[in-house]
Simulated scan of single mutants.
Amino acid sequence: MGATAWVNFSVALDSDPLERLEAQAELERRREKEWIGKQRDARLTPDMSRREVAAVRRQIRVELAAKRAAGELGGSRDLLIARALREELRARGLDREWPEPPEGEVDAPGRRWGTTASKNMGEGGYEERLSVKLPYALAETIRRAAFWTSLAAVEALQEWDERWGRAGEVVMRDAKLAGVPEQQAAETAAQRPSAPRAALEARDRLRAQVLTVGDLLRAAVDRTGRPGQQTEVPGRV
C-alpha cells in the first residue's frame, strides 16, 4: 500500500469526548491557518512572478506536511486521532511490529468472537458515532495489536462456549444486550441448562481481556480531547 493510503473506521462513543475532540480540532485548524498565513506574509512579495509564488506556496505545503507528520500541527480530527492513537499504543506497550494475523481474521464484519458491545447505542448507551480516516500503516497496527493481544482470551471464550454456551442464564443476558424480547428469550432459556455463577464470572473476566479496535479509537478520542493529560490505561492490556 502507498504511504498516502487511508482506511475508514466508524466508532460509537459518548458525546462529551466527541465535543472535546471537536473543540481541540478547531483550535488546531486555527493554529495551522495562522502558521500558513505567517509563512506567506514572510516569504511572498509583490514583485514575485507567478512561478516564484507557486514555488513558495509549494514549499509551504511541504513544510506543513512535515509538521503534521511530526505532530507539531494537526488541523483535522483525523490527524489528531492518528497522533493520539500512536500515543495510546506507546502507553499500552503496543507500538511495535505485529505479525500478520491469519487471513480474513481482522477483516471479519461485526464484533470480535465472544465479545458484546461495551454499550448499546441510544438511551443509556453511546450517543454518537464518529467516522475516522487513518493512514493504512496505523490502521494495520491497531487491527493487529487488537487481534494478537486478545487471542488468548478469545480462544478461552471459545472453550467456554463449548461447555456453557447454551446455558439459560447466558441466553437471557445476551438476549438483553441484543434487544431480544424478554418473553422470547425466557422461553428459549427455559429449555437450556444453567451455568453456575462462577462460570459466568469467568466469562466476564475473559471478555474484559479482549481489546477491540473500538476500544483503542475511543481511548484515542478521549486522549485527544484532554491535551497534556495521560489517558488511564486499563490493567488488562
Rank of each mutant, 00 (worst) to 15 (best):
A5Q: 08
V7A: 10
N8M: 13
F9W: 08
L13W: 08
D14C: 08
D16M: 14
R20T: 05
R20V: 06
L21K: 01
L21F: 06
E22D: 14
A23N: 09
A23S: 12
Q24G: 09
R30A: 14
K33Y: 14
W35A: 05
W35S: 03
I36W: 08
I36E: 10
I36P: 04
G37E: 08
G37M: 04
Q39S: 04
Q39I: 01
D41H: 13
T45D: 07
T45L: 07
D47Q: 13
D47H: 11
D47R: 11
V53T: 10
A55Q: 11
V56P: 03
I60Y: 05
V62G: 04
L64F: 07
A65T: 09
R68N: 11
A69C: 08
A69S: 11
A70L: 09
L73A: 01
G75V: 04
S76R: 06
R77Q: 10
D78F: 07
L85G: 00
E87Y: 09
E87T: 14
E88P: 06
E88A: 12
A91M: 06
R92H: 05
G93E: 00
L94P: 02
R96T: 07
E97H: 10
W98H: 05
P99T: 06
E100L: 13
E100T: 15
D107M: 12
A108C: 04
P109E: 06
R111M: 10
R111H: 11
W113Q: 10
W113G: 03
G114I: 05
G114Q: 03
T115W: 02
T116V: 12
S118R: 15
E123G: 12
R129W: 13
V132Y: 01
V132A: 00
A137L: 14
A137T: 12
A137K: 12
A145Y: 02
A146V: 03
W148F: 08
T149N: 06
S150R: 00
L151G: 01
A152F: 07
A152E: 13
A153P: 02
A153W: 02
L157G: 02
W160G: 00
D161F: 10
E162F: 07
E162D: 09
E162R: 11
A167L: 04
E169T: 08
E169W: 07
V170A: 15
M172G: 02
D174G: 07
K176A: 15
A178E: 13
G179Q: 03
V180E: 04
P181G: 03
Q184P: 06
Q184K: 14
Q184L: 14
A186I: 09
E187Q: 14
A189S: 04
Q191V: 07
R192S: 08
P193D: 05
S194Y: 13
A195W: 00
A195I: 01
P196R: 05
A198R: 11
L200P: 02
E201S: 13
E201Q: 15
D204G: 08
D204V: 10
R205S: 12
L211A: 01
D215L: 01
D215H: 09
L217Q: 00
R218V: 02
R218H: 01
A219C: 04
R223P: 03
T224W: 03
R226I: 03
R226P: 00
G228F: 05
T231G: 15
E232Q: 14
E232H: 11
V233L: 09
V237E: 01
V237D: 01
